[in-house]
Amino acid sequence: MEEIVFDFGFVLTHYNYWMFVVLMMTGLYITVSRGNLVKKVVGLNIFQTAVFLLYVSMGKIVGGTAPILTGEPGTVYSNPLPHVLILTAIVVGIATTALALALVVRIRETYDTIEEDEIIALELAMDTTAKASAAGSER
């Protein structure tokens, strides 16, 4: 069996992935454990931002600079491609967040609540009354 040693260099070159995984899981926890729909949307946003951070961190070069060309030879630039993808993803993210919030507003108007448990209970009640009335009309 291999001897487990604390490798500081390894930690220093991998801590960024772990940081963003922790943030991601915090967002996931908010989304899964809270019943309030607005809070679920906020949790999804946190998850999304953590994914963006993870993605951009892979393009970073230590000692490099932002990919805006200065013309000086020998300058190291970080990878511009993740920046492009994430930049557009952020704007698409806010558009889809707005869509989610619009749905929340309509849910509130229909069910008069934005708590998941109460919505499920209302749906169940609706199902049973629908079934009862269907059975009644058959008779």
């Binding site: 704007v91 619009a102 507003v105």
Partner: peptide, 16 residues
């Protein structure tokens, strides 16, 4: 597009 979309969404929420 982005400016108009953001303002349209805001107006939709604010005057609902």
């Amino acid at each position: 597009t982005v400016a108009a979309v953001m303002m349209a969404i805001f107006v939709a929420f604010a005057s609902h």
